[in-house]
Design a protein around this nucleic acid. Structure first.
Length: 579
DNA sequence: GCCGTTTTCGGCCCGACTGTTTTCAGTCG
């Protein structure tokens, strides 16, 4: 059997499902062990199949949270495509765990009862049982449970899971702003994965300091846009907005603010590790503080908690259990690029192709935001639907850029519009515009906009050939993914990163919210390889320059310092870093 | 079942809310 078909995701999913099955039977501790092993597999930057074929069983055991027993199960899976223990569990309760687990309020124990009593195997069975009023008659369930399951099913049909940070950020900010206006509220902040600035988020967590929690909670569950109330308590409430976004709210007293912020910011694994550090010192860490017996020894702010635990402060974007605790302890955390550090934007579309506004409008918006330069990068002729530029039209565009630059200068503005292109990479890796044109551009970006489903080797070779072109400065949105729309194309990113180093090509962090491309793990690899990156808005409208901050978030999540990003520099220095 | 700057054995993060209960199990984060 060709083991390359055994993806890490497939292995992780089986381990995760074993954990759920064990949970059903109230097996102690082992569920968590399988869950952690599953996370360990997902966190790998190589495939488990590769690890196994190069180092055998012993190498599998080196995977975090994988011991001898789970290593053997992974080996069994890689060799036979099956895990016997899993098949046995699955035969006993043959249900679609992935589906059923999506329903809010349904966990392992209830899945077991639903199968054993009503033979419910999937969402369809569950829906029929709800409609027939069978759920309410089960022991441990009731009318309310049935109603909640019914509502849960509705929402699964309506919305499919994750939200793009840049598309919900403002709405959550508005809610927080309104909470801040309520009497007795001293602070209201966003925590959770939004504070960690993840590119895609599952829900929103808001933290409030108030002496009058009841008023906060009453407002929260009755504010406009609330579609469902999951919980309405004194210190904790949870709702779903009509767009499907779940929002959790917690109210804590001021002396617990730091501990609560830390706890609700996560990540979960990061928090668990901090609690374990506390336990080792004989203390206890929870959302109310760090305690030595009954005595609170820290909790008012996050800094003092980290300090007591022997750590320097860790920025939220780094709290993903990917080495930040070790780095913090050793004083080796990166000096992250800041949110005000960009001086230019290297990918901007205008009304010459699919952008909404003129070159001048885009330039003036960039000036208002404090940028010093932008590169105009309209599409090229292969992208016919955008009226992509050919040789003649791009020469016309250069004239317009020269004119506007002169005009801005005559107004005393110190700003520069650079000539660029977002040039299509054709199927064979050649460019959509001739070298003669590319050589006259200040900045050449190259993009894949077609043939997303080429085989991995062919796609990788195609892109690498484009990067080898001496005029191609930047590879735009290198993986091509669009969140909630399409996956990245099959491409060997390690090879691309190595080739970027070899050819001096810059890799872009496209900040457009549903692109967020490069991903954080690629950014870290670029840093390790010594590959330079740019952070670009990919603006199609003057309001899109705001998106640059999401690119900075992404860079921070990839541990990037200023020095790795070329557009933190003034224009001449930036240009000097290109080919 | 995993793991070790307290441990190779004996631990394993912790608390809030709901619904169905009559003191608590299940779920969630």
């Amino acid at each position: 059997m060709d083991i390359t078909f055994m993806s890490n995701e497939a292995i992780a999913k089986i381990l995760q499902e074993i954990a759920i099955y064990l949970e059903m039977d109230d097996v102690p501790f082992r569920p968590r062990a399988y869950e952690k092993a599953s996370e360990g597999i997902l966190g790998l930057d190589r495939s488990a199949a590769e690890i196994y074929s190069s180092g055998g069983l012993a190498a599998l055991e080196n995977i975090p949270n994988v011991g001898i027993s789970i290593a053997e199960k992974i080996e069994e899976f890689l060799k036979t495509g099956k895990i016997k223990d899993y098949e046995l569990l699955k035969r006993k309760i043959p249900v679609n765990l992935g589906e059923l687990r999506m329903v809010e309020g349904i966990g392992p124990k209830k899945i077991k009862i639903l199968y054993q009593k009503l033979k419910i195997r999937n969402l369809k069975d569950l829906e029929s049982a709800v409609k027939a009023g069978k759920i309410r008659k089960l022991a441990g369930f009731g009318e309310r449970s049935e109603e909640n399951i019914s509502k849960g099913l509705e929402f699964i049909k309506k919305s499919g899971g994750r939200f793009v940070l840049g598309f919900i950020d403002a709405q959550v900010g508005e809610i927080t702003g309104n909470l801040r206006k309520i009497k007795g509220v001293r602070e209201a902040v966003v925590a959770g994965s939004i504070r960690r600035r993840k590119d895609a988020i599952g829900d929103a967590d808001i933290l409030v300091i108030s002496d009058k929690p009841k008023e906060v909670m009453d407002y929260f569950v009755s504010m406009p846009g609330v579609a469902r109330i999951f919980a309405h308590g004194e210190t904790k409430s949870a709702i779903k907005l009509s767009n499907g976004l779940d929002v959790d709210l917690r109210v804590v007293p001021e002396e617990s603010y730091g501990a609560a912020l830390n706890y609700f910011t996560g990540s979960k694994d990061h928090n668990v590790a901090l609690r374990e550090l506390a336990i080792k010192r004989g203390w206890k860490l929870n959302e109310y503080g760090l305690f030595d017996g009954k005595k609170r020894i820290a909790g008012k702010n996050e800094e003092e908690i980290y300090k007591k635990l022997g750590l320097s402060y860790i920025e939220p974007e780094l709290r993903e259990m990917s080495g930040e605790l070790e780095a913090s302890r050793a004083g080796k955390l990166p000096d992250l690029i800041g949110y005000g550090d960009l001086k230019g934007d290297l990918q901007v579309q205008t009304s010459w192709t699919d952008g909404a506004q003129s070159i001048e409008e885009m330039a003036r918006a960039a000036i208002d935001l404090g940028l010093e330069y932008i590169v105009i990068t309209d599409h090229t002729k292969r992208l016919a639907m955008t009226r992509g530029l050919n040789e003649t039209r791009i020469r016309m565009q250069w004239k317009e850029i020269d004119e506007i630059n002169r005009k801005l200068k005559s107004e005393g503005l110190k700003f520069r519009i650079l000539k660029g292109t977002e040039c299509d990479i054709l199927k064979d890796g050649t460019m959509d515009l001739p070298d003669e044109i590319l050589s006259k551009c200040d900045v050449v970006g190259a993009s894949v906009h077609s043939l997303f489903n080429l085989p991995k080797k062919e796609q990788t070779d195609r892109i690498m050939r484009a990067m080898s072109n001496p005029h191609v400065d930047i590879l735009f949105h290198p993986t091509g993914r669009v969140l909630n729309k399409r996956d990245a194309y099959e491409v060997d990113m390690d090879a691309i990163i190595a080739h970027a180093k070899k050819t001096g090509t810059v890799l872009e962090i496209d900040a457009y919210p549903d692109r967020a491309d490069l991903k954080a793990e690629h950014i870290r690899k670029c840093i390790e390889a010594g590959v330079k990156m740019s952070i670009d808005s990919d603006a199609h409208h003057s309001s899109h320059f705001e998106f640059l901050k999401y690119g900075i978030s992404q860079a921070r999540r990839g541990w990037a310092e200023k020095k790795y990003i070329i557009n933190v520099w003034p224009v001449e220095k930036m240009l000097g870093m290109l080919k």
